[in-house]
Structures are given as C-alpha cells and as structure tokens.
Write a protein that binds this DNA or RNA. Structure first.
Length: 159
DNA sequence: GCGACAG
DNA sequence: ATCTTGTCGC
C-alpha cells in the first residue's frame, strides 16, 4: 500500500512534523492492519522540545512508535563500538538520556534511536536491531523508502 | 555572537 | 531530501 501526497510546508530543522505528519497520518488511514509498533524515520524524544515527529505520530495514532533517525539533531554522545549491536547513550544538555546511538552494521555510521510513544528506550533499541541484519536502516523503514521512491518515479514518468 | 540544524 | 563518481566487500 502506498499513499501519495504533495507537501507544501518547507523543511525546517526541529519542525519536521509540520511538513510530514499530515501526509503520514493520511497514509495510516489507508492501512488496514493493526501494527504493534511503528518505526518513524526521524527523532522522537531526542528533539529540541522533546517532541519529534515520532512522538507526534505516536500520540495521534495512540500506538507505540520508535524514532530512528539517520543523523543527529541534538545531544552529545560517545561513538559506539565498531561492531553491529554496540550502542551508546545520547544525552541532552542536562545529562538526561534522550536516546541511543546504535550501530546496526559493522563499521557503518550508526542510527539515532529515541522513544516515540508508549515504548521504552531499551526496547526501542532491541527492536531496531531485531528488525534488520544486513542493512543500516531497519527493514520497515527501508521497505517504506523503496516503495515510496518507486511510486514517486512512476507518478512522474519512468525516465 | 557563532555554530548546529531529523527529512 | 536529491544528485552523483569512484570504491569496496559479500
């Protein structure tokens, strides 16, 4: 299942929800099954106002969500070990843990995992690792990206 | 004031 | 996000 929608709002760091959440929620209206947890391509708690798009979507859907971003938005952290499975904590300015830096592939740039809604950080990290083996991005997000990219081209014209 | 800044 | 060259490992 794919959902296509043109976005108008611009992308502004810290305000990703304003740009993508509406379309994301519209897409979920088409989903017929009831997932136990949802991976969001972006941060959750590890956000300037502790309210990234993963928290936003989780609240709207009243469903567990995991924020799994490909790059850092805020916070400090130690570089996790080089092997898959190792991870370190992400801290805010007050040394509070706001997420985890997880190595999902050996020697590959880690992903930034944080709580979205109705889930703990430890479980979010475990699920992130459990949902992938050979790729940096967890399978749910990876597949979603592939479907979206393919759908987008067909809509524009197979060039 | 300067640098950083999810997708 | 999108574009894009050469390089590397299974």
């Amino acid at each position: 299942m794919v959902h296509q929608e043109s976005l108008s709002s611009p992308y502004i760091p810290g305000l990703l929800s304003f740009r993508g959440a509406p379309a994301l929620l519209h897409a979920f209206e088409k989903v017929r099954h009831d997932p136990d947890v949802v991976f969001i391509d972006g941060h959750g708690l590890s956000h300037p106002r502790s309210a990234g798009i993963a928290c936003h979507i989780g609240l709207c859907l009243n469903k567990p969500t995991i924020g799994c971003a490909k790059s850092l938005l805020i916070g400090r952290h130690r570089v996790p070990g080089p092997s898959r499975g190792s991870y370190t904590s992400l801290y805010d300015a007050n040394n509070h843990v706001i997420g985890a830096v997880v190595r999902t592939r050996d020697r590959v740039k880690p992903v930034f995992v944080s709580v979205g809604h109705r889930i703990g950080l430890a479980q979010a990290v475990q699920l992130t690792l459990a949902c992938g083996k050979g790729y940096r991005i967890p399978e749910p997000t990876r597949q979603a990206d592939r479907w979206a990219e393919q759908s987008k081209r067909e809509a524009i014209g197979i060039k």
